[in-house]
Design a protein around this nucleic acid. Sequence first.
DNA 1: CCGATACCCGAGTAAATCACTCAGGTTTTA
DNA 2: TAAAACCTGAGTGATTTACTCGGGTATCGG
Lengths: 154, 154
Amino acid sequence: MKLTTKGRYAVTAMMDLALHAKIGCVSLVDVSERQNISLAYLEQLFRSLKKSGLVNSIRGAKGGYMLAKGDKEISLADILVAADEQINLACGGSACSENTPCLTHGLWTNLSNQFYEFLDSKSLNDLVKSRDVQTMATMQDVTQIGNIPVQISK
Amino acid sequence: MKLTTKGRYAVTAMMDLALHAKIGCVSLVDVSERQNISLAYLEQLFRSLKKSGLVNSIRGAKGGYMLAKGDKEISLADILVAADEQINLACGGSACSENTPCLTHGLWTNLSNQFYEFLDSKSLNDLVKSRDVQTMATMQDVTQIGNIPVQISK
DNA sequence: CCGATACCCGAGTAAATCACTCAGGTTTTA
DNA sequence: TAAAACCTGAGTGATTTACTCGGGTATCGG
């Protein structure tokens, strides 16, 4: 039971967008530097996020990404699902088919649903509000000399 | 967020033991046939379960495995952990080290703990009691001509 | 209008993990 | 003593992961 880094990165990146929502749109270069994630990987990731309608993009210089909905309308589950992170513990292999389900088939679908409910109950806003994240975020912005709008030299 | 088949098999197998606890010990051949899991794989799996103290074994003909504790003392979490199924969604890669944790580090350790609590609150007995499992189990035993104690011919 | 910035896209790939299998044991019972 | 069963280490093909690469195309400032 583990999460792929893709799912984890997706949540991190979405939080970054949420934290800098006031600026308008955020470039992946910024996200990459702040969150320490490879740019190429982020681009690939944001394709999925966009396809799922979680973010909008603006092309060209001064472009970037922004949340397609409000903070509170996006859940952890939404993000994970968008990042191909299926929240499904159930079986689909050889030992368990539709007509001859295994002993635990019901159990896992049940648990999966409960996990989904749980993850769907946490909004991006909930996450961003947390004290932990707030302090980390300001630290990140300060480290970025000059903060966001200016950014003169490399 | 998915479960490996190893974890799933472990739970299935443990439930099989629990369901046939009255017989004394259960051979892996029986479990293999009833639950449709490769014998060799089960043997490998039961090494882990034994090492973790969840089952005891009796060697030789008429031998087999049995639960090392009561139904109610064994949790889903216990079984999954024994089957090398770590219940940990947190990061440990490049983007996130101890001194420079990523934005979401706290979030994932938090979630992991909640998941663990949840899985630890479900005992093997809880699972076995469920209507679903009961009916499936009797079906499995009936299909096995002659049921458990007798088992004359192959 | 040109070059820099940034999004967009398909494909490829090394490393890791998974889901097993195999080939041998050793112990116990009938 | 043969069969049943547990025990063990090692190997392996397939799949998935976590990326990278090499090209685009749109937009803005000068």
